[in-house]
Simulated scan of single mutants.
Amino acid sequence: MELMRAARLHIPSRTLTIEDVPRPVPGPRQVLVKVGAAGVCLSDVHLIDGTLTPAHLRGEAVTLGHEVAGTIAETGPETTGWSTGQRVVLQAGDIRDGRVLTRGVDYDGGWAEYALASADTLFELPDSIPFEQAAIIPDAVSTPWGAITTTARVRPAQAVGVWGIGGLGVHAVQLLRAVGAYPIIAVDPAPAARQRALDFGADLALDPAGPQLREQILAATGHRALEVAFDFAGVPAVREQALTALAPKGRLVLVGLTDKPLTVTDGTRFSYLQHQILGHYGSAEDAVPQLIALADGGRLDFSRSITDVLPLADAGKAVRRLHTKEGAPIRLILRP
């Protein structure tokens, strides 16, 4: 039995360790991928701190990592269309027995030397896109892309607000710029995050604690207010604040995850202005190949998104850096 290194999270104790585990063997219609790069996401941090708990995990431990890119090392029986040596990106989840499961949450992910994947969850990766940039496309880029294009259905020249300029929010700013939203108003309490938003294409970056926030948004939008607001922070106060900045028939899209209650302070105003609150999670199956094509074609550039690359052995260090925001990271990458 061959072994490999993997970063395993023991769910009952929330303990992350680097272990030697059996190297997976691909079954029917599966492939084994040699991991080239794996992203570290705030969702991984929340799994470790107990904020999130896997809903469908079998057993008490899981290899983390839902953002994965690498090279096919082995194909299983009945696997067609793929061959060893091909560069690939792995979808962040899979559908099994009618349930949507998340890689690195409900089943083993890519914080390891090798990752197992169903053949229909792979996307071919052009040589023009490095593994480090490709790995973040499923989730860090595809989740805001889905929120913008599918859930919110943002159209050109619509005024939008983005609360929370972390690993997903900063890509939302970049993608909103790409689809022609205007103006794009970023809101974050951290000065470094606000500057990052401007660097990625925001027209205005505001501090949520500012006493004139709503007035500044009205001024920037020609008194239209926001047609769409996105919560990438997953903070109840953010949601309440964003609702106050919405235009009539405006939409608030909830992307950031929280287990706290969702409240509407002024129900009469909410109904009178015909506001909507829309939940969002992940992305459709076509999101990742769309983004790969746009990056390969030069329409999108994710090189600025990679703050640092660390060895797999430093997974715990990467988690701490993301949790404490040391160095204001956009995305940290693990390389086995």
Rank of each mutant, 00 (worst) to 15 (best):
M1Y: 07
E2N: 13
E2K: 09
R5F: 00
L9F: 08
T17E: 13
D20K: 12
P22S: 14
R23N: 06
G27R: 13
P28R: 01
R29Q: 13
V31Q: 07
L32G: 05
A37H: 11
C41I: 09
C41T: 09
D44N: 12
P54N: 11
A61N: 10
G65L: 13
G70A: 11
I72F: 02
A73W: 03
T79F: 04
S83E: 15
T84I: 02
T84F: 01
G85F: 03
Q86M: 13
Q86P: 01
V89P: 09
L90E: 11
G93T: 05
G93F: 10
R96H: 12
R99G: 03
R99D: 04
G109N: 02
G109F: 04
A117V: 12
F123V: 04
E124T: 14
Q133C: 13
A140M: 14
R155M: 11
P156M: 08
Q158G: 00
V162A: 12
I165E: 05
G167V: 05
A172Q: 06
R177G: 03
P183F: 00
A186K: 04
P191F: 06
A193T: 00
R196G: 00
D199K: 12
G201H: 10
A202H: 02
A202Y: 01
A209N: 14
A209P: 06
A209Q: 15
G210M: 12
Q212A: 15
E215R: 13
A219F: 01
T221C: 08
T221G: 02
G222F: 10
G222D: 09
L226Q: 03
V228M: 02
G234S: 04
V235Y: 08
R239P: 00
R239L: 03
R239K: 11
R239Y: 05
T244F: 07
A245C: 15
A245Y: 01
K249D: 12
K249A: 15
L257E: 12
L257N: 05
L262S: 08
T265V: 14
D266P: 10
R269Q: 12
Y272W: 13
Y272A: 12
L273K: 14
H275M: 06
I277L: 10
S283A: 15
S283P: 01
E285W: 11
D286K: 09
Q290I: 08
Q290N: 14
Q290L: 08
I292N: 03
D296P: 00
G298K: 05
L300P: 15
S303W: 01
I306M: 08
T307A: 09
D308Q: 14
L310N: 08
L310Y: 11
L312E: 08
L312W: 09
D314F: 01
D314W: 02
G316L: 05
K317E: 15
R320C: 00
R320D: 11
R321V: 09
L322R: 05
E326A: 15
R331I: 05
I333H: 08
